Amino acid sequence: MSRLVIFDCDGTLVDSQANICRAVEEAFVEARVAVPPRDAIRRIVGLSLVEAMQALLPEAADADHRILAQGYKDKFVAMRASGMLDEEPLFDGIGSLVERLARDGWLLGVATGKSDRGLDRVLATHGLAHHFVTLQTADRHPSKPHPSMIAAAIAEAGADPARTAMIGDTTYDVMMAVNAGVRAIGVGWGYHEPDELTAAGAHGVALAVADLPHHLEL
């Protein structure tokens, strides 16, 4: 069976923190809730929206988490419609890495807390969409670290779980991979620290994009 590498998006493929932080801040302001610091907001990147709001405001009621999640969606849509979204740049070397892995015969996928629309926009902007055979988003799955996205990606790609790797920058990505029984590879340029990724169960942590092929020797 084929080998598959699944990438997280925010903090792994692209640096999207500016848009995420601004949308969270505006949603909290509108809800008249104290705005969390950006360090705290970056910590929740990768979670689905309700779970992210639970992490940011654990003392609030479930209904308030849903209101904040909807507020985030509304702010993001408004930012997109007004042309106020910042560019979400690829991290240096990611474009070349994706092309190299595709040439080397890897099947490629994405598992992300983004929506379908958000992920499609990122891949189209950077001309990468044609490289990916499976795209799994928060629109159809439970939040990370539930293994649903990885299981669906493996099934859709027709890949071998023993030859599948998940690459991500957060403990949620690593724990999702562990829960799915696939290789977990952390990256050191995103929103959680390398030692956290190792403690969460990462089989290895790449500190530079150029190091990733070494960690993919399955």
Rank of each mutant, 00 (worst) to 15 (best):
P36L: 01
T137E: 11
V178T: 09
P213D: 10
Q136G: 06
W106P: 13
L47N: 08
H131L: 01
A152E: 09
G105C: 13
Q70S: 03
R38T: 15
F76L: 10
S96G: 13
A210K: 10
V209E: 08
L68C: 11
R22K: 14
R43V: 09
N179A: 15
R80D: 11
D8R: 01
A102T: 09
L90G: 08
A153C: 02
I6H: 07
G181H: 03
E87F: 04
L128D: 11
E59M: 02
K114L: 13
G158D: 06
N19F: 14
V187R: 07
S96D: 12
K73R: 15
G71T: 02
A202C: 02
M84T: 14
E99L: 10
V5Y: 10
R183G: 12
P37N: 13
L85C: 09
G71D: 04
V33K: 03
L101S: 05
A102R: 15
S2N: 15
H130K: 12
Q54P: 00
C21S: 14
Y191M: 02
Y191W: 09
D160F: 14
G11L: 11
Y191P: 09
S16D: 10
S148I: 10
G109L: 12
V14H: 00
L197C: 03
V182Q: 12
I167E: 09
D74C: 00
K144F: 00
V33N: 00
G186D: 04
I67Y: 08
V205P: 01
D74K: 02
S143M: 06
T171A: 08
D195C: 08
A40P: 02
V122R: 03
A78Y: 07
V209D: 11
R22Y: 12
A23Q: 06
N19K: 11
G204A: 15
V35W: 06
E59V: 06
G186W: 03
G186R: 02
A165K: 08
F28Q: 06
G71P: 03
I154N: 04
H65S: 01
E25M: 12
A111G: 12
Q54W: 05
H131I: 00
P213A: 08
A151M: 10
G188A: 05
A162Q: 14
W106V: 09
A210Q: 15
L135Y: 07
V50G: 04
G188H: 01
E51K: 13
V110S: 12
A153W: 02
D169V: 13
I44D: 01
G93A: 08
F91L: 04
A157H: 06
L49G: 02
D195A: 11
M176H: 06
A208N: 08
H126F: 14
L4I: 10
A138C: 06
E196R: 08
S2D: 15
H131T: 00
